[in-house]
């Protein structure tokens, strides 16, 4: 008994109704015309296209694949965020704590200028100096006096006497003009 006969006999015992339907009915579906002539060519075309893609993009070497996988491992979203945060903190640390070049102080800045040049500058730009600065400059220590070209030590009495003599020599008009 072949398989078809076995199936028929089995179905006859199980459901005569289904056996009848099987013997009556053909295939309820159909396919577009020429479908089975077209199918092998279409599958081969897709298979060749896939092979072409593989050949156009040769597989990466083991070394480059390993490097790529390692890099990809680093650039998972969580790791990338952590990496970016650490980079930002390192950059801020470098900016804040890197030793800055020292700015020269005023004395160092003026070290290369001779006394003559300084005097000439002050004399030419006397109008640019404020009163406070001039007064401050006038207050000098006793040690600095000999180095300065000022009047010899004069007492208060001498000054008063000097002023009386000047006043006596002045005319009335000159006095009025001063006051």
């Amino acid at each position: 008994m072949n398989e078809k006969d076995k199936i028929r006999k089995e179905l006859e015992g199980l459901s005569p109704l289904l056996l009848k339907m099987k013997e009556q009915g053909g295939r309820p579906f159909r396919v577009p015309e020429g479908y089975f002539e077209y199918l092998p060519g279409e599958v081969l075309r897709r298979a060749r296209a896939e092979e072409g893609l593989i050949k156009d993009h040769p597989p990466a070497t083991a070394d480059s694949t390993g490097l790529l996988a390692w890099l990809q491992g680093w650039f998972t979203p969580r790791r990338a965020m952590a990496l970016a945060t650490v980079s930002l903190l390192v950059a801020a640390g470098i900016f804040l704590f890197w030793p800055q070049p020292l700015q020269p102080g005023p004395e160092e800045a003026l070290a290369g200028i001779s006394g003559e040049e300084a005097k000439a500058y002050v004399s030419d730009n006397i109008g640019e100096f404020g009163l406070d600065l001039l007064l401050e400059a006038a207050v000098v220590s006793a040690d600095e006096v000999p180095e300065m070209e000022v009047l010899p030590d004069i007492g208060q009495e001498d000054i008063d006497q000097y002023l009386d003599e000047v006043i006596e020599e002045m005319s009335l008009d000159e006095l009025e003009e001063l006051l």
Binding site: M21, Q24, G25, R27, P28, F29, R30, V31, P32
Partner: peptide, 11 residues
């Protein structure tokens, strides 16, 4: 592409 009879559709 289905052109079966009612019985086949029911099956």
């Amino acid at each position: 592409y289905f052109d079966g009879e009612e019985a086949q559709a029911r099956l």
